[in-house]
Computed example of a mutant assay.
Amino acid sequence: MLLKSIRYSLDELIYLLNQLSDKGYSKSCESLGNETIGEHTRHIIEMFQCLENSYDLGILNYGNRERNDQIETEIEFAKQCVVEIRTGLKSENKILYLEHVIGGLAIRIQSSYYRELLYNLENCIHHQTLIKVAVLKFQNIAVIENSGIADSTSEYRN
């Protein structure tokens, strides 16, 4: 169910990106504190990429993600990255160690691939909500009704 939910959320992101131009995608939005839709999309993509790239080694540090400007300025490239993430999701859970640097010291805590997938799903939904706020200002953009809404919120509302 987790992988299915992630794929659905990524499909929603592609659906939205298909409706935008590179100009609108990379334009600063006042409602996002002058950030761009592309910046939020890059964040979603790179968090998933970081997790997937850390799977074999088993040590995950989100602070070491790439921060590729091409993702935040070129929709076609961003969509290609989303498709690669979607098809590259692993079905086998395993122990991972989450590494984070605090005050110059690296700490590691035990996590798991599925735990981090869940984190990335929630992060994706959060950023899709922000993107939704930005695209509501555009005309002729269709947004899937529950896009950017966590499953628990939808269940609560029902």
Rank of each mutant, 00 (worst) to 15 (best):
S152Y: 15
A134N: 09
E52W: 00
S31V: 15
E72I: 04
A134R: 11
L98G: 01
C81N: 14
L105C: 08
E12Q: 15
G103K: 07
I45D: 01
Q80G: 10
I14A: 00
D22S: 07
Y97H: 13
L98M: 10
V143M: 05
L121D: 00
D69R: 14
I71P: 00
E66Y: 09
D56Y: 04
Y97W: 13
N146Q: 12
E46V: 06
R86N: 11
R108V: 01
I141W: 01
G148R: 07
K137F: 09
L89Y: 05
N158T: 11
G38S: 07
E39P: 00
H43G: 01
N146T: 14
L118N: 06
S9D: 04
L136H: 10
R86M: 13
K23P: 00
C29Q: 15
Q80D: 14
L20D: 02
S91N: 11
K132L: 06
T129A: 15
N123I: 13
I75P: 03
I45F: 06
Y62A: 02
A134T: 11
E66F: 09
M1Q: 10
E35L: 13
F138G: 02
L105W: 09
Q19N: 03
R7L: 02
A142T: 13
I102L: 14
K90E: 07
K79N: 04
T87Y: 11
N53Q: 14
E92S: 10
G63W: 04
K132R: 15
L3W: 10
E116I: 10
K132E: 06
N64P: 03
H126D: 03
N146H: 13
E116H: 04
N158A: 08
Y25G: 02
L10H: 03
Q49P: 00
T153C: 00
N93S: 04
L89N: 02
C124P: 01
V101E: 15
E52L: 15
M47W: 08
R7I: 05
R108I: 04
E39C: 02
N140Q: 15
I14W: 01
T41S: 10
L130D: 02
Q19S: 01
L96R: 03
A150W: 10
K90V: 04
Q80C: 12
L3P: 12
N18L: 09
N140R: 15
N68P: 05
S9T: 15
D151K: 12
F138N: 11
I131M: 07
N34Q: 09
G104K: 09
Y15L: 10
Q110F: 01
L3H: 11
L118C: 02
K23W: 05
I95R: 13
S54N: 07
K94L: 06
S31A: 13
E84I: 07
I44F: 06
L98Y: 13
V82E: 03
R157L: 15
R42D: 06
D151Y: 15
T41Y: 01
L105A: 09
R86Y: 09
I141F: 01
A142S: 13
K23I: 12
G33F: 07
G88A: 09
L105E: 14
E46Y: 03
A106D: 08
R157P: 01
